[in-house]
Simulated scan of single mutants.
Amino acid sequence: FFWSLYSCWPFSWSERKTESNTEPRSSLPVDSIMAWYVSLESGKFWFPAQVYNRENGHVGFMLSCYDAQLSYDSRTDTFRARYSPHGRRMVEENISWDRLRAPAVDTPSHVLHNSDCLHDLKPGDHIEIQWRRNKEFPYGWWYGVVGHLESCGRNEHHCLCFYKDTVVLEFNQYPTGSRWRQTMINRKDHREVGNEADGFYGGIRKIYKEEEISMWKSLWPRHALE
């Protein structure tokens, strides 16, 4: 368990957060691996990570991934998470290992990600896009795919979507006709777009690794969301 956790997270363990700011009573050096292990096992060690489908798969967060502070519960071999959506803390318990990941990019959750893939996007590409309910909330990362423009015949040999400024993003977990099913962005000058009713779409990252795509597909809801 210890070595698998230690190797999973490519950030500095020396910058850990504990429940108390007091000096440890143990004689172990503060920056030793054993001191870290004791702190982890006791649940006092909190570290940054991201959680898929937060709030136990709540329908409002399906196929998303949000920043959180996590600690390990050795009794259940699961994690607890603290989210800070809007000035208040929300805690989730019993999070399994497969719902965690290290952040895919270094962009903080309140900062617009620099989209460096816009000119490469074409129908069929898998993407993650930042989205937030309003401008006081942090961004989460949401899974989607690049779709075809309505004017396109969807024939791969004659598709010109790659050459158009407008890019269609589809979220096929939602039914046809849902306001969450599709959005469009401009590949030339994309910034945050949206409104208070539908939320705000931010930066985009293209997913290249098959293992990341497979992970998102494994989280696919059994039924279309409303």
Rank of each mutant, 00 (worst) to 15 (best):
G194E: 05
S4R: 12
K209L: 10
G147H: 02
S7P: 01
N114Y: 12
T22D: 11
W46A: 01
M184F: 00
A68I: 06
F1Y: 02
R181P: 02
I33A: 10
T176A: 10
G60K: 10
R191C: 07
L118P: 03
K122F: 04
L70T: 05
H86D: 15
D106W: 06
V193R: 11
L63K: 12
R191T: 15
N172V: 02
H113D: 06
Q130K: 08
R16P: 01
M34D: 13
R54S: 13
W220R: 05
V105F: 11
S115W: 13
E226C: 10
M62W: 06
D125F: 08
D98L: 07
P221I: 07
G144V: 05
F171N: 05
N195V: 02
T176N: 06
E41D: 00
T22W: 05
G124I: 00
S4P: 01
G147R: 04
F47V: 04
M184N: 00
Y72S: 00
N56I: 00
I129R: 00
K122A: 14
H126C: 15
G140M: 12
E136W: 08
Y174K: 02
L169T: 09
Q130G: 08
M62L: 15
E226S: 15
V51P: 04
F137Q: 10
W13I: 08
E92P: 03
W13Y: 09
Y139N: 12
H86F: 14
A224F: 15
K122G: 00
Y163Q: 14
I127D: 05
F45V: 03
V30F: 04
L28F: 00
G153A: 10
E212W: 10
W142Q: 11
V167E: 01
K17C: 12
W220D: 09
W220G: 03
E55D: 14
M90W: 11
H113I: 08
P103F: 11
N114R: 15
D67F: 14
E210C: 03
F137I: 03
S109M: 08
E192N: 04
S151Y: 01
E23A: 08
S74E: 13
I185K: 09
K44E: 14
A81Q: 01
V38P: 02
D198N: 15
E150S: 14
F200A: 05
S71Q: 09
M184K: 13
H119G: 00
C65I: 00
S74K: 14
W9G: 03
I95M: 04
E226I: 08
L63A: 13
W180V: 02
D189T: 14
S115K: 08
F1V: 09
K135W: 03
H158L: 13
W13V: 07
W3I: 07
K164H: 14
R99F: 15
V91S: 01
L5A: 06
S115Y: 05
W97S: 04
P103Q: 11
E212A: 09
S64Y: 00
E212M: 12
